[in-house]
Simulated scan of single mutants.
Amino acid sequence: MPLDPEHTYVHLAENGQGTETPGGAAFWQLPPAEMARFDQGWLVSEFVCSEDWSNWEMHPHGDEFVYLLSGDVELILELPEGLQTERITGRGARLVPRGVWHTAKVFAPSRMFFITRGEGTQHRATSGA
């Protein structure tokens, strides 16, 4: 049966083993102790974004692969030299460097695919970025 990464995430462990886990709200509502088992390795997930992200995020222990499968988004990266924006329409990808705060503005409903190193991920509220 095919896997749908919007509803079933995949955790790729350090040793190369992949494990399927329920995605969406079921994943994000896990207690912190259960969530911690996903810190090491990489999380593969997909989201449908219909509005601007409500927060900035930063992954201190690994780059993040962000792939727009369809839609229209503008990625905003907070770099030492200032904000950098990159609009992606239709499809395309961006590698967000580790330690870089980032968020997105959504101009049309967008399907996005992520490969993320979760350990130490931080969030902060956007303020109209």
Rank of each mutant, 00 (worst) to 15 (best):
Y67A: 10
T89L: 08
L43H: 00
H123T: 15
E74H: 07
V48W: 05
V96A: 01
L69N: 04
I76W: 05
T126Q: 14
V66H: 06
T103S: 11
G41E: 02
H102D: 06
E119K: 15
F47L: 13
F65M: 11
G18N: 07
M112Q: 11
V10Q: 08
I115R: 05
A129K: 12
S110E: 00
G62V: 05
L3Q: 14
A13P: 02
Y67R: 10
W42M: 06
E119S: 15
R37D: 01
S54Q: 11
F65A: 07
R117V: 01
C49F: 10
A13E: 06
T8N: 02
E20F: 13
P32E: 11
K105W: 09
A129C: 12
E119H: 13
V66E: 03
Y9E: 02
G120W: 04
G118F: 11
G128A: 13
I88D: 01
V96D: 00
V10L: 15
Y67F: 14
R124N: 10
R111M: 01
Q40C: 02
L69W: 04
A33G: 00
Q17T: 13
E74D: 09
D39K: 02
V10Y: 00
S45A: 09
F27M: 09
T85G: 07
T103G: 08
A93W: 09
G24N: 11
W42L: 06
L75H: 08
P60V: 06
E74N: 08
F113R: 14
G90E: 04
G41C: 04
G92R: 05
